[in-house]
């Protein structure tokens, strides 16, 4: 897969993301407990954690879709809601209305919808970008297909293409490899790695896929109300146990992909 010509914005600072003391409760339950996190531009962070551990919620707070009870999120020094269009998001494909009438092409162009303003039509450039993004995820041949008729893995790749069309500085992904076969999993991670290394895109990826995650990402955090994160790639048994609150059978962090595929 190849990368198109992303324009890098050099005016942005080095700090991509700062989270300070983000705390969120729902009723009597604590969803997120005093989360702190700092990411430099070009970081690639994987977040693992049990279901209901607050992973999606944290992503939504970073996106400015949810407000924390206290604490602060800064994206390149600005609040998420005043920095629209530069942070993009790949949601879980399961959350979509299975009857919604929209084809793949229009889903992908949606990545440019924020730039339309009063213009009723997408520009030629928007369409060129949509085409190259769809080619990047090998879904261009599906462009006229109904989105809801696609398989999980196909939807996932279309949603990736949609996020790429907006040429984000920061890309957040929520379980991008759920119900996707090994081959596509590998190609998704390879694409993310390429975007991260060649284009300096900061990536935060939430996943259950501990094996894959630790073979591709630089930094791993465990989230279960608390974020356990040591700022390095080390994903230890202790971290995972502390986070899940029970013993999890995961082999130690390694860069050998082969070893991971055996998990």
């Amino acid at each position: 897969m190849m990368i198109g010509d992303f324009k890098k914005d050099d005016k942005l600072g080095k700090k991509a993301l700062t989270i300070e003391g983000v705390h969120l409760t729902k009723g009597e339950n604590i969803i997120l407990r005093d989360i702190d996190l700092e990411l430099d531009r070009g970081d690639f962070l994987g977040i693992i954690g049990p279901n209901g551990g607050g992973k999606t919620t944290l992503l939504k707070i970073i996106l400015g879709l949810l407000e924390p009870d206290r604490g602060r999120v800064r994206v390149f020094g600005k609040s998420p809601s005043s920095f629209r269009g530069k942070v993009s998001y790949v949601p879980q494909f399961k959350n979509f209305d299975s009857d919604f009438p929209i084809n793949v092409w229009n889903v992908v162009l949606m990545g440019r919808v924020g730039s339309l303003g009063l213009n009723p039509f997408y520009s030629k450039e928007d369409k060129i970008r949509a085409k190259s993004s769809l080619k990047k995820v090998d879904m261009y041949d599906f462009k006229d297909r109904l989105f809801s008729s696609l398989s999980g893995g196909e939807k996932q790749r279309v949603l990736m293409a949609r996020a790429l069309v907006s040429e984000p500085e920061i890309l957040l992904l929520d379980e991008p490899t759920a119900s996707v076969d090994e081959k596509i999993k590998t190609s998704i991670f390879e694409l993310l790695k390429e975007l991260n290394e060649k284009k300096d895109i900061t990536i935060i990826l939430v996943s259950h896929d501990v094996g894959f995650l630790s073979s591709y990402v630089e930094k791993v955090g465990c989230l279960n109300q608390n974020l356990i994160y040591h700022g390095s790639g080390e994903l230890t048994h202790e971290m995972i146990e502390e986070s899940y609150g029970c013993k999890v059978d995961v082999i130690a962090h390694t860069h050998s992909k082969k070893a991971m595929e055996d998990v």
Binding site: L63, L65, F96, G114
Partner: peptide, 9 residues
């Protein structure tokens, strides 16, 4: 179709 993505975009 996707209110959250629209907001982010």
């Amino acid at each position: 179709f996707d209110e959250e993505f629209a907001e982010v975009a």
